[in-house]
Design a protein around this nucleic acid. Structure first.
Lengths: 182, 182
DNA sequence: TATTGTTATACTCTATAACTATA
DNA sequence: TATAGTTATAGAGTATAACAATA
């Protein structure tokens, strides 16, 4: 993977047929057995910018987590949804969509899929029969546990890269960006 | 915007009709005039995780840049493409796709659009008539200048949030994540 | 009238596979 | 046979608008 500084793919989908990828993450294409090296690509001033590097780091980290969650057979998006339901038992679909920052219509197929696969239960509420209460089933809890394990391993890798000294401040800055950037 | 810790929309598309958004970025829904406050949403352990915060920060920053580039009438993706062509004059479409980490087929409509709108020139090479050389036109350079200006304003905001003391180390960590996380 | 969830529809970005024209 | 670029097609994730049921 290389730039992705604008729109990265949501999950790792390595191009298999069409592109002869160079295996390295770096910018410089590799010369292979005696061929002339392909010319290195320049990214200009971008390489020094925060926005660019934030994008690249997030992209890489997200793809790594994607791979892990796919080993469990789930998309990373399911982790989000399952976590929110687990931590907020009985949440309604509208509340869930607001928490996730999505339109409620976007959630319909997601919830449907989770219900169909036995991860989530829906129950009408008594007092307002328009809404559903969502809860995890046993299977849903199990899957969430697996995904959480993936996330922890991933997190350990990030920790190792960052180092204990800077971790706190790093997260603090990320939170500040999420809260304050317009 | 709220969670987006998994799949954020690529550009800011505020839900206008269906969702009653609370204006704050924060997690806690606001109580409005005497109504009972909606129950606050819990994110569980996620709130302390690097991956989660990286995602949230990048999402917020990216959306902010999206808004700015849309003021210029371009998608943020065009900034990527134009920059790469500008910094690597005569680059081929395949090289461009590799630099961007995308399949070359994904680039066809993008380049086509830029050529149609007079931003990019394509010329067949003499020695290998399969490949094109891509270059910015005057209009393309002008647009890139505008986008670069957007990016600089955005970058200043990020700088202000991070503060001069931590900036260098912050970028260093982001680069390390992009390079080392598996 | 307002809200919850669904449906219909469309858009963006991306990929894979097969094709063409060249090498 | 291999490569550069195109075309056809598909899929994931998202949105808007209109709707039925309910409040």
């Amino acid at each position: 993977m290389a730039v992705q500084f604008i729109n990265g793919p949501v999950v790792e989908r390595r191009a298999k047929t069409n592109v002869a990828r160079n295996g390295s993450r770096g910018v410089k294409p590799r010369a292979k057995n005696g061929e002339a090296a392909a010319k290195p690509i320049s990214f200009g001033p971008l390489a020094a910018w925060i926005g660019f590097n934030l994008r690249m780091a997030q992209e890489t980290a997200f793809q790594a987590f994607s791979r892990r969650s796919q080993e469990v057979g789930e998309s990373p998006g399911r982790f989000a949804t399952l976590t929110l339901i687990a931590r907020n038992p009985g949440i309604s679909q509208t509340e869930l969509s607001q928490a996730a920052g999505r339109d409620k219509s976007s959630l319909t197929p997601v919830v449907e899929d989770l219900v169909r696969r036995g991860m989530v239960e829906r129950a009408r509420t008594r007092d307002d029969r328009r809404t559903y209460r969502l809860n995890l089933t046993t299977a849903g809890k199990k899957t969430l546990t697996q995904l959480t394990r993936c996330a922890r391993r991933h997190e350990r890798n990030l920790d190792a890269v960052i180092g204990p000294r800077d971790r706190k401040r790093f997260i603090q800055i990320l939170k500040k960006i999420a809260a304050e950037i317009e």
